[in-house]
């Protein structure tokens, strides 16, 4: 392969991504196992029953869920403390949205992924996409959901953890669980698309590989993240000249 590769993720970013992925899946599965109530459990009784027999009882399942959740949150807090600049840049990148460019991108991308380029033409649109930065708007939306959702999930989770330990009023725990469940559900809906885009769709294969290697091919960067590519290229030129 003679293709020029461009650096996209450092090792710590790759680690935190897969750490997050592992924790999310594990917490989602154990969390679903904690909802053992006919009116509430979204998968039916078999899932909580299976999880409880796997972990040796609901109380063990609860402990695993709580402590894994605390470790998950703790590692993120540690990351923020160790890399405040990177965190700030990430947040700035993710929450800076250009309405005209990104909305057009979002609409066209949805049509393209479901109806194809022919579908785009049928609606009188050209198949080219507005240029995107380090993250495209879809990635930004999901990143925003994980950041805001993550904060809500950790705060409500900690409230529930502390409730039997020190909270004399039971209401915060009751409402925390409702919010916890809602936010996890919404982020999970986004996560399905995230996993499809990265691991299954052909278009984003290089991005998936970069979550292991840290680099993307130059042509991919140019086509999928043009604004970012131009920045990188300009930076390189400056360094050379």
């Amino acid at each position: 392969m003679s293709e020029k590769m461009i650096h996209r993720h450092d090792k710590l970013s790759i680690f935190i991504h897969w750490f997050n992925a592992f924790c999310w899946i594990a917490l989602l599965l154990t969390g679903l196992g904690l909802i053992k109530n006919e009116q509430l459990n979204p998968l039916g009784a078999w899932w909580p029953n299976l999880m409880r027999s796997l972990f040796g009882g609901g109380e063990n399942l609860m402990a695993v869920h709580q402590y894994l959740g605390l470790i998950w949150a703790g590692v993120f807090v540690l990351y923020i403390l160790l890399r405040p600049r990177e965190t700030w840049l990430f947040l700035k990148e993710v929450f800076r949205v250009s309405p005209s460019r990104d909305m057009t991108w979002f609409m066209k991308m949805n049509l393209k992924m479901t109806l194809g380029k022919k579908g785009l033409k049928r609606f009188g649109m050209t198949p080219d996409m507005p240029p995107q930065g380090f993250y495209n708007f879809g990635q930004k939306l999901f990143a925003q959901a994980t950041v805001l959702g993550g904060i809500a999930i950790v705060v409500t989770g900690v409230i529930m953890f502390l409730s039997p330990l020190m909270l004399d009023n039971p209401d915060p725990a009751a409402w925390s669980r409702t919010i916890h469940y809602l936010v996890v559900g919404l982020v999970t809906a986004g996560m399905l698309v995230h996993i499809y885009m990265a691991a299954i769709s052909k278009e984003e294969k290089p991005a998936f590989k970069s979550m292991f290697t840290g680099t993307v091919p130059e042509h991919y960067a140019k086509h999928h993240h043009q604004l970012w590519y131009e920045e990188v290229a300009a930076g390189e030129k400056k360094a050379e000249g």
């Binding site: 009116q39 509430l40 979204p42 669980r177 409702t178 469940y181 809602l182 559900g185 919404l186 999970t188 809906a189 399905l192």
Partner: peptide, 14 residues
């Protein structure tokens, strides 16, 4: 709220 609103909403979204 969890039983009658949040749960159906989450199911529809997912």
């Amino acid at each position: 709220v969890m039983a009658s609103l949040v749960n159906p909403l989450v199911k529809v979204a997912v």
